[in-house]
């Protein structure tokens, strides 16, 4: 038995305060979306109203960035799923030469600050004379999404690569049948979780995007512009809630999909 299974009061208070610090600011966004005050961030709000949701809905300048963000996130996630799964499949096999370097290469795009990824891509587009487009945004997003899918898939692959794959081959299935009937059903939830996290990460990304988007606006870039030069503050609040929910839901889903395994999603963003 542990001799002191109860935490000291100071520690409990410190932990509780730290968690409050992490969560209260996000809750405030929800409050501000209902404020009647339009020009300042006055607290407490002088009154509450639902009208900003309607105003935001009717603002024509919000929809194109939303569509672009969804489009970029979907394409980047699809690319990252293919590339991340391939590399996870290779890495879970026997040790081979250069294995450690490859893991470093996969990690680098999120280990180095986003501004470096962004500025590098910007330099490359400049050197090669590539014009900005939706695809230049996707190029950056898919690159840092690969590691998210990889992280989720590699642990599951490692567990799988043992005897059930051998059992399938042993019973006469070829490699493709084994992938379809044995690997995919067992890998599915890890891939779904990885895909959702990658989607959330891409949907929300702003730093790399500002370097690769040119004149186009994703929803986070739209928000950033509103932050720097506010026009209708409560509308921005409503958009913030939309962005928050669009990232929150897949992340929560990813957690529940991989819960209980050794590879719970989200440990390494």
């Amino acid at each position: 038995m542990r001799s002191d299974s109860r935490a000291p009061l100071g520690l409990t208070l410190g932990a509780a305060a730290g968690l409050l610090f992490l969560h209260v600011p996000i809750l405030l966004i929800f409050l501000y979306a209902f404020t009647t005050e339009e020009r300042t961030y006055q607290f407490p709000p002088p009154g509450l109203t639902l009208k900003w949701f309607a105003v935001a809905w009717n603002r024509a300048d919000i929809w194109p960035p939303l569509y672009l963000s969804l489009q970029v996130a979907a394409i980047s996630t699809a690319l990252a799923l293919v590339l991340g799964t391939l590399v996870a499949a290779a890495m879970s096999r026997a040790k081979f030469f250069g294995r450690d370097r490859i893991s470093l290469l996969i990690l680098l795009p999120i280990a180095l600050p986003g501004i470096i990824t962004g500025m590098s891509l910007r330099s490359a587009f400049d050197v090669m004379g590539i014009p900005f487009s939706t695809w230049t945004i996707v190029l950056g997003h898919a690159t840092f999404c690969i590691v998210i899918v990889f992280n989720n898939a590699v642990a599951r692959f490692r567990r799988l690569s043992g005897s059930i794959v051998e059992a399938s081959l042993d019973l006469g299935a070829n490699g493709f049948q084994t992938f379809r009937h044995v690997i995919l059903p067992n890998l599915g939830s890890a891939l779904l979780a990885g895909g959702m996290l990658a989607f959330a990460l891409s949907f929300d990304e702003v730093i790399v995007t500002t370097f690769t988007a040119g004149q186009q606006s994703t929803l986070p870039i739209w928000m950033l512009n509103e932050l720097v030069r506010p026009r209708q503050r409560p509308v921005t609040n409503v958009v913030a809630i939309v962005v928050f929910v669009t990232t929150f839901v897949p992340v929560l889903a990813a957690y529940y999909l991989t819960r209980g395994g050794s590879e719970t999603a989200g440990g390494g963003k």
């Binding site: 992490l22 969560h23 996000i26 966004i29 996290l197 959330a200 990460l201 929300d204 702003v206 986070p220 928000m223 950033l224 932050l227 913030a240 809630i241 962005v243 928050f244 990232t247 929150f248 992340v251 989200g266 963003k269």
Partner: peptide, 8 residues
Amino acid sequence: PLWSSYLV
């Protein structure tokens, strides 16, 4: 909080 929108 780690995964919630950075900008938000």
